[in-house]
Design a protein around this nucleic acid. Sequence first.
DNA 1: AAACCGATCAACCGCGACAAT
DNA 2: CATTGTCGCGGTTGATCGGTT
Length: 301
Amino acid sequence: MGRTPCCDSTGLKKGPWTPEEDHKLVDYIHKNGHGNWRNLPKNAGLQRCGKSCRLRWTNYLRPDIKRGRFSFEEEETIIQLHSVLGNKWSAIATRLPGRTDNEIKNYWNTHIRKRLLRMGIDPVTHSPRLDLLDLSAILRSTLYSSSQMKVSSLLGVQPLVNPELLKLAASLMSCERKSPSFSPQNSSPTIQFPHEQQLVEPTGTEFNDEWLSGPILPSCLNLDANFELLGYDYHGLDQQELARTEGKNKNKNLCSPCSSSPTQMNSNSSNFTSAAEDEKESYCSQILNFELHDIFDEAFM
DNA sequence: AAACCGATCAACCGCGACAAT
DNA sequence: CATTGTCGCGGTTGATCGGTT
């Protein structure tokens, strides 16, 4: 590329638009259409670059723009689409009539992203941030129980903890240790549950205090097998775009634990109040907890 | 009242895609 | 095929505002 940006010309105004400039731009586009953005400012009598005019029009002055807070359904749609399309804000915007890509992007970064993080959901992968879960507590009790296993067997009673739990924990640890530089871009690990994989029996050298006190859960867990069951509604998505996006997102976990059919929730189209946001957060947390319980139930029982 | 801080969002910038030459 | 020009996208910035200290 390397060509000069269109705004290089000196003397062109930058910064916030005045009502007069807005009026000029709207008036010109209503009469002539925008046509060539590069020539538009000159023809419209604006001291702006075409790029600035296009942005002002598409993000602010367009008559079909819906302003105001995002509705419950809109936010849910954004989360669902983001889990499929990633940061394809323009693609997401085409499915939200009246909303611009810029508006959606801002809303994502200022509201949704933070809420997902608070809920322990990775806003990039839409999967639970298992690195935040405190498995150390589980492991401590497991370790304690494992030491009792021999005693239990000697006594002829069943151990209190499913030994598979211990195996899985060991597997998780070795996963973390083997790939400390793991990133979603260079790998697509999927957790292998005990019935699917030969697990390494923990030995005395593998379990130590460092493990129990350090960051416990590997970031390489991928629970997509379970989260796919949440069932996205892909209806209405352009299949070509999906295919294109899947190429870029193939290493990501394309699911959203806090998605659901809008009808399952409060279907009022009311805008969010802080209370409503709390309600939504709570709702999503419940789903997340539910799913996590399912996962661990399935894995350990 | 003033300073500080975080949230919000309009606007900018750089770059890639694609069409035209 | 290479170069040039335009458009649009996504990341980032910075002005503004409201709340808190």
